[in-house]
Simulated scan of single mutants.
Amino acid sequence: MLDPNSFTPVPVTILTGFLGAGKTTLLNRILSEQHGHRIAVIENEFGEAGIDNDLLIQGEEQIVEMNNGCICCTVRGDLVRILGELAEKRENGSLIFERVIIETTGLADPAPVAQTFFVEQDIGEYYLLDGVITVVDAKHALKQLSECHEAEEQVGFADRLLLSKTDLITPEEVIELETRLRLINARAPIAHAHFGETDISEILDIRGFNLNAILEIEPDFLGDVSHAHDAGITSFVYRTEQAFDAARIIGFMDVMVRDYGNDLLRYKGIVHIAGCDRKVIYQGVHMLLGDSIGELWAANEVRQSVLVLIGRNLPKQEIYTALDSCRVI
């Protein structure tokens, strides 16, 4: 058992927010900031394959990806194991870090994740839950809060609320959203984060997690917290090592957003375009689709396209067939 008089627990930040809110953008902002901290990152995705690890800035930070389920469900045992392994490596000197950031999947209820630090004795002694930061997609939040209980849970458990995409709505709509958020969580300060730009001091070392306040929200927080996803939400992955034709894949994306945008909660991918030496990154939420040019394909790297789609009642086979037709044969 650790001596509390001679050991300072490692602070942990839980970074949450609904699908496509901008968590990875914010995390990249934190990792690229010249703040002098060494950070271990645990990153989780919903579905059979994850690509966020490829979208994160790779520096000296330790990044551990968990992509075999929701971090608040079957893989919480993995979270305990990974935190234990990180602690062991830190103690034997094979890994140096001062804090941990856990980026949850956009469908995670943060309660069981936070619960880990209070019901697992070894974890609770070595780590200190510093705060829960929730990124809120200002463009889609009101709809998400009405339709998905996970979005409400993420807001309710937040110690800080960061609004992204406020440039896509009117000032009046921002006020309406902030009013709704305060009805759910009156204690969490609200700030804006344009493309992840925010004051690091408002995110790290805030000592914001208040167990008594959480117990008021969820009295059985320290008990057996069950969690179930919307049965209609599914995730699937499309992979191919054949290059896409640029015009065809652009046309597919436009049609997909037009026909299925309302049911597409989140879609993202790293794509190999014929004749392009750089990765092309697609990311979208509902009807909003963005693309950007990523890093160069490495000389020995397999040029594989991976597209992840999360949504309600999506026609998987139709989408697969349409994507197949976009390939250069």
Rank of each mutant, 00 (worst) to 15 (best):
E91W: 01
H149L: 03
Q115F: 03
I217S: 02
L145R: 01
V280R: 11
T24S: 11
K279E: 10
G208C: 00
P315H: 05
R90D: 06
D3Q: 07
L163E: 07
T179D: 15
L56R: 04
A138D: 06
E152H: 05
L211P: 02
E295L: 09
D199H: 11
E172A: 13
T240P: 13
V308R: 04
L296P: 09
E48T: 15
L211E: 11
R258L: 14
E172I: 08
L27K: 05
L323G: 02
D54H: 15
D199G: 08
L145F: 05
Q121I: 10
H227S: 14
A247P: 06
E147R: 13
L177C: 10
I293S: 11
C276F: 03
E178H: 09
F97V: 01
Q283G: 04
A243F: 10
T8H: 14
E98P: 03
L265C: 03
G208S: 09
A247Y: 09
I102T: 02
I133S: 05
Q144L: 07
V100S: 02
I270R: 01
E61D: 14
R29H: 15
I273M: 08
G196R: 06
H194T: 12
A114Y: 00
I200V: 15
A243Y: 08
E60G: 15
E176T: 09
E147G: 03
V271M: 07
E85N: 13
L142A: 12
P110G: 05
P9K: 08
E218W: 02
N313M: 03
V12P: 01
G20V: 04
S235V: 04
A243N: 01
N92V: 06
E60N: 15
M287V: 12
L27A: 10
R180Y: 09
A193G: 06
V174P: 02
H37E: 05
Y127P: 00
H35L: 14
R76E: 14
V10M: 07
N28R: 01
F157P: 01
M287H: 13
E153W: 14
Q34K: 14
I123F: 01
D167S: 08
I101H: 00
D324F: 09
K89I: 07
I270T: 01
H227P: 03
P9L: 07
D263P: 09
G124K: 00
G251C: 05
D122W: 12
N44Q: 06
A193Q: 09
I214C: 04
H37Q: 09
A108C: 12
M253T: 14
R182H: 15
E103M: 00
V302F: 09
E65K: 03
D259S: 15
P9G: 10
K139Q: 12
I281Q: 13
C73Q: 08
G269D: 10
G232Q: 11
I319A: 08
